[in-house]
């Protein structure tokens, strides 16, 4: 049981970090970023290239992932989403654009990094063993701790910095924020860059453990959607809650339901449907926020 909980917490921390980026972009610009999973894969490949191919330390790879993805996010916002949002009659047009970007990133990843499964060598050796009750390799613990630290850093940024305040104001009410003198264009760009950077960071973290391959983008986006459905879209606490809940459900489900075959996600989906029937806006979301 302790093992299941520990696995769930570890998974949850990763998931929460992915969901945070997605929910940030959603709350600022009302854009559902289909390309989030692809950004995550891209971040993983950047870390792989820096660490495994160039032989630089892991932290450099992680920084490279963060910077490249942040720049990519900013460019995507300024040159793609901004003009389309301005010109289109419906909010939904951005979905088509986001899907196009997802395909585009898939193509770029295929051309630049190839289709093979890639991983980097373990960053720390050894296995933590608590009386055979919890067995967990040290690198997983390190990654989990790093993920939690990043989540804490992100919350601190949103709560206490001027940038964070501006972004929260934007998420609450775009018009009012603009009237109060918030530079909407600038903070939309920063927000998108930050969201993309988070995706890249998780990719960089996870490449050390599960490795990375081209096909992981779509399923990762799907999981991120699930999390923000559970927690409520556009709410930071909701994304974190959703991430940990999904991580926990996956961990418990894989153990408990193992006897019935691979039906964990079917069960999760069915329970989500029941949950949404009672609470369509998720745990912490505003109704139709």
């Amino acid at each position: 049981m302790e093992q299941i909980l520990a696995n769930g917490l570890y998974l949850g921390a990763q998931y929460a970090l992915i969901a945070l980026g997605l929910t940030l972009i959603f709350s600022l610009m009302n854009v559902l970023n289909f390309a989030h999973g692809q950004m995550y894969v891209f971040g993983g490949f950047v870390t792989y290239t820096v660490v495994a191919q160039w032989g630089l330390p892991f932290i450099v790879g992680l920084m490279a992932s963060a910077i490249i993805l942040a720049v990519m996010g900013a460019l995507i916002e300024v040159f793609l989403f901004r003009p389309v949002i301005r010109k289109s009659k419906r909010d939904e047009s951005t979905m088509l654009l986001a899907a196009g970007i997802a395909f585009f990133l898939d193509a770029v990843i295929l051309l630049v990094f190839g289709e093979k499964q890639r991983g980097v060598p373990k960053i720390v050796d050894g296995v933590f063993n608590w009386d055979m009750r919890i067995i967990m390799p040290y690198d997983r613990i390190l990654i989990g701790v790093l993920a939690v630290a990043l989540i804490a850093g992100f919350i601190a940024l949103m709560q206490y910095s001027k940038t964070g305040r501006a972004m929260r104001a934007l998420a609450q009410d775009r018009m009012a924020a603009q009237l109060m003198g918030v530079d909407v264009d600038r903070y939309s760009m920063i927000g998108f860059a930050l969201g993309a950077m988070l995706a890249g960071l998780v990719g960089g973290l996870l490449v050390t453990i599960t490795g990375i391959n081209l096909g992981m983008g779509g399923p990762t986006s799907i999981k991120a959607f699930l999390m923000i459905m559970i927690g409520g879209a556009g709410v930071i606490s909701g994304a974190i809650a959703g991430g940990f809940i999904l991580g926990m459900m996956e961990s418990v489900g894989l153990t408990v339901l193992a006897a019935y075959g691979d039906i964990t996600y079917l069960v999760i989906f069915a329970s989500l449907m029941v949950f949404l029937a009672f609470r369509p806006q998720g745990l912490m979301g505003k109704p139709w926020g």
Partner: peptide, 18 residues
Amino acid sequence: LPILRLRGVYFAMITLVL
């Protein structure tokens, strides 16, 4: 019956998950 109560991106997301 349950998911059509959702709107906008929420409905889009859940159908994709489906």
